[in-house]
Design a binder for these strands. Structure first.
Lengths: 240, 240
DNA sequence: CGGGCGGTTGACCCAGATCAATCAAAGTGG
DNA sequence: CCACTTTGATTGATCTGGGTCAACCGCCCG
């Protein structure tokens, strides 16, 4: 089950969170960050495979990741799910419920994770005092729109090998931003999750990882990936 | 070219716009709507095929449709475009630039259209005075996220015939909301646009319209569509 | 009335799905 | 610590939905 962590006394505040300015980076001074800390009254531990929230939940909150990794997915009426995003430490998810109504997606932990909770009602109050926070949330929201448009573009226009290359490069860029090596990291999700996300089967993903390895573009051992030829992956996506 | 319409004296205000409460429906009283009118200082006419905005435009505005129809599309580095949405009168588009940075999509008129322009800088000011407007914009933004998640779900999980059925029903629902007949309307876009949007070729779309007609689900003559068996279309999407 | 664009229909083909067997890693319990 | 199970990944063989290419139609507009 998800474990709630009380945040009253000596628990870590935003001001000295290890993620630094990754979570809310935009022009925010230290006093503003103090306000942000006030916003996060709750942090939860979620075990691998557990839900952070379900479709229909009316908790009225958005979430940022402190440690771990999360996937979000939507569901259709015949039970099929589609993964709409993978989220890494410092990234914010659950924005589909920002309207303070209810979540239209599930959020599931890909590994044991620690997640900060921000309630939209608190958020409305604090944001009114801090204009930069207001702007930051709009930025997050349009960022989410742009992200899903990018995914749509990939699903609609790329071949299977291009999609997988795109996925690898996207992950690489995001791990880099987190301060990890840009060409050596551990994938947090299964082949099945990757396939679902990219509109492919797990077999196709596996075959393409193998092919890329044979061609010397990457080295892959289970979920540990090392990018050997960043350029080649990049150019693979370039032309149809 | 796009023609700008001065909105100083006797031009129509939001308060007596024919769309009524469709454009900004949420709990907004008449005084609030007066404020909304102040927000819309500009309205533009766009001829069929013309752009409302291009990728990279920094106009810092969002748009709502008074008459006509608009498509938005994103582009990848090899020139392929992916349509991310079709918009009808009363609907708001261009939200990807709400961050006041720049548009990451193109908006193109599917027919001669009239479009209201709301600048985000004005919007920030007015929204601070009207909390309900603040909420309304957040609602629009998360609505946009939900919409693109729905599209992702369709692209990722539905067969070609299910996608086309889904498209027809979605259009039907939206025309209904506009006060038109729910089972007889004119599609505003070409087969190619529909195909692009749904991740199919125009031939596949055409074939499926024909098949649905043969099966008695719809009647289609060019872009004029009449839904004959709403139930059957609905149930087509239900199971894999 | 002729030209062109958008739409339809047919024939063929291939990328990627499906089905199936095998393998490897990571638990799990005795 | 080692057998046993489970889960995830790889690889091969085969099949098919929808793409591609091409011909044709018909509506609309000048």
């Amino acid at each position: 089950m998800t474990r709630h962590i009380a945040l009253n006394k000596d628990s870590i505040h935003c001001a000295n969170c290890m993620l630094g300015r990754i979570c809310m980076p935009q022009k925010m001074n230290l006093t503003d960050i103090e306000h942000l800390t006030e916003l996060i009254k709750e942090r939860i531990r979620v075990a691998k495979g557990e839900y952070v929230f379900h479709i229909g939940n009316t908790s009225g909150a958005i979430y940022s990741i402190r440690t771990g990794a999360i996937k979000t997915q939507v569901e259709n009426n015949c039970g099929h799910t589609q993964i709409t995003g993978f989220f890494l430490p410092g990234e914010v998810f659950g924005l589909d419920s920002f309207t303070a109504q209810q979540h239209t997606s599930d959020a599931i932990a890909l590994e044991d994770s620690e997640v900060c909770v921000m309630y939209t009602k608190d958020l409305n109050i604090v944001a009114q005092q801090i204009p930069s926070l207001q702007a930051q949330f709009r930025h997050l929201l349009s960022g989410e729109i742009i992200r899903s448009h990018q995914l749509l573009l990939s699903l609609g226009s790329l071949r299977s090998d291009q999609r997988v290359a795109w996925f690898i490069l996207d992950m690489s860029a995001r791990f880099t931003q987190l301060g990890y090596s840009s060409n050596e990291f551990i994938l947090r999700m299964s082949r099945e999750d990757i396939g679902n996300y990219l509109g492919l089967t797990l077999e196709t993903v596996s075959r393409l990882f193998s092919r890329f390895q044979k061609e010397g573009l990457i080295h892959i051992q289970q979920r540990a990936i090392r990018i050997l030829d960043h350029e080649a992956l990049q150019s693979l996506i370039k032309y149809k």
